[in-house]
């Protein structure tokens, strides 16, 4: 407000040497805001800094252990150095084969996980609502649940006509049980007072299911999806290593067979990044679907 007025009078503007008059009122305001921003985001900035430092430390340790070929209970003699892995990474991103492996794994995850969600969530909801369905399905599920997906590999190969289908089936199985169990758990925790409130407001069975049971279970459904996605990757990689011809798990195993040690680490890191990325996608979907839970 005052600075343009000062500027109109030429002698005053010259006397106050422009920066002295015009800038001071702005800069404190700006820096106060910046300071406040820093103060409000202190915790987040701190974890960001510590997290970055920790990753850098990890890389340095890895670098030192491999360049000096440390042997201390574990042998780092053949372990590839981070720079070697980086070199094979720059090569791999231009290699259509590597990208195909990744895409194929993602496709298997997508199909297997989606099927598990499409079957597991409704089944869990129905089991939570109808006692008979629960009584029929639960014992079978409890017997099958502790069997690790990898143990299903031979059976899956017998069950399905193609290799591809059996791998997707293994992925499906891995994510199915966490999704089912968590959905069911969410259903048992629905506050009965909310159901009574809905009934008092004229809601019938279908509406209660849609408007109360389903949204009330959503947080647990998303816990199930997150856990299920993790197990889906575990199962997929195991299945690809055992019976696959393509996929990032196969790539990693093949690298070992072909004595391309840098590619082993590259494959592992790729799996880690893909796993992290897919759980971030689920978390983002959760925040989108449950706006009342994000602050």
């Amino acid at each position: 407000m005052s600075s343009p007025a000062l500027m109109t009078s030429p002698d005053q503007a010259a006397a106050s040497a422009a920066p002295g008059a015009a800038i001071p009122p702005r800069r404190p305001a700006f820096s106060a805001r910046t300071l406040r921003w820093f103060r409000l985001n202190q915790d987040r900035l701190r974890s960001l800094l510590v997290g970055t430092a920790s990753l850098i430390l990890f890389l340095i340790a890895w670098h030192l252990l491999t360049t000096y070929r440390v042997v201390f209970f574990v042998k780092f003699t053949n372990v590839p150095a981070p720079l070697a892995v980086y070199a094979s990474f720059t090569k791999a991103i231009h290699d259509p084969h590597f990208l195909m492996h990744i895409l194929l794994s993602c496709r298997r995850i997508f199909i297997g996980f989606s099927l598990a969600a499409v079957v597991g969530v409704p089944l869990g909801l129905i089991m939570g609502r109808f006692k008979l369905v629960h009584e029929v399905v639960f014992p079978v599920a409890e017997v099958l649940r502790p069997i690790p997906a990898i143990a299903w590999v031979p059976m899956a190969i017998m069950l399905w006509p193609t290799n591809e289908q059996s791998i997707v089936f293994i992925t499906f199985l891995g994510s199915f049980f966490p999704i089912l169990v968590n959905t069911l758990h969410g259903m048992t925790l629905v506050d009965p007072v909310l159901v009574r409130a809905a009934k008092c407001l004229g809601a019938r069975e279908a509406a209660i299911f849609r408007e109360v049971y389903f949204p009330a279970s959503l947080p647990h459904i998303f816990t199930g999806l997150t856990v299920g996605m993790g197990v889906a990757w575990v199962s997929l990689i195991a299945a690809e290593m055992i019976s696959g011809q393509f996929g990032i798990g196969y790539f990693t195993w093949e690298a070992y067979s072909l004595v391309q040690y840098a590619d082993i680490a590259l494959g592992m890191i790729a799996i880690g990044v893909l796993g992290l990325g897919s759980s971030l996608v689920i978390r983002a979907a959760g925040q989108l679907v449950m706006p009342w839970r994000s602050r």
Binding site: L194, R196, C200, L201, G202, P215, A216, W292
Partner: peptide
């Protein structure tokens, strides 16, 4: 059985947490 002609208010509020204030009021 319960019906909308008998409105009920509970001690635990029992608002639907996933609905906004207006959506809660709209429910019935």
């Amino acid at each position: 059985g319960p019906s909308a002609e008998r409105g009920m208010v509970f001690q635990q509020y029992s608002l639907f947490p996933w609905k906004t204030v207006r959506e809660n009021v709209e429910f019935g």
